[in-house]
């Protein structure tokens, strides 16, 4: 049985690398990524699962890292925006001006990347369903939709 009783070192697989982090069992994945591993791409917003700014991929699926204990992530593959390395969705966000202040952008990008990985043939309905998990207070929704569509269409062709 995996157990973690006190603050201690754990090993996480992040962006393809094994990294050690000193954490408490009660720490969230978001906290560990930012404060222990220096991966500040995932943003703290509401820290209540509402805004999606902290979204990362866990085993390929978008997860709000503020609602995952770091202990839960042990043994799973974590990907943050730092691990995308210029993926097409990142270029598409630039090309479509799909951000203004940029705070929500990493979360949106990771959610979009998850959709591209899992449903590369996503319908508009599925796309809308997924994108509703993230909030952009600058209201760049049209541009974000255009960005993800451009990648899905490119994959199709």
């Amino acid at each position: 049985m995996y157990q973690m009783l006190n603050e201690g070192l754990i090993e996480l697989k992040v962006n393809g690398e094994f990294r050690k982090a000193l954490v408490r069992p009660a720490d969230t994945l978001l906290f560990a990524l930012r404060e222990r591993l220096g991966l500040t791409g995932a943003k703290p917003g509401c820290e209540n699962g509402d805004c999606g700014a902290c979204t990362v991929l866990v085993d390929g699926w978008p997860i709000k890292s503020c609602l995952m204990l770091v202990a839960e992530a042990v043994g799973h593959e974590i990907q943050t925006v730092e691990g995308l390395n210029g993926a097409p969705i990142q270029t598409a966000f630039v090309d479509n001006f799909a951000f203004q202040c940029g705070y929500c952008t990493p979360g949106f990008i990771m959610n979009c990347q998850g959709l591209i990985n899992i449903h590369p043939d996503a319908s508009d309905e599925v796309m809308q369903e997924w994108l509703q998990s993230n909030i952009c207070r600058c209201t760049s929704y049209q541009e974000i939709t255009a960005a993800i569509k451009s990648v899905l269409v490119a994959d199709e062709s």
């Binding site: 049985m1 995996y2 157990q3 006190n6 603050e7 069992p25 720490d27 202990a71 839960e72």
Partner: peptide, 21 residues
Amino acid sequence: MIPFDFEYYRPESIASAIDTF
């Protein structure tokens, strides 16, 4: 951040989960 500490257990069987509880 969760402002208190707790222990984390991830058992692999029903019996282990109940025993741990």
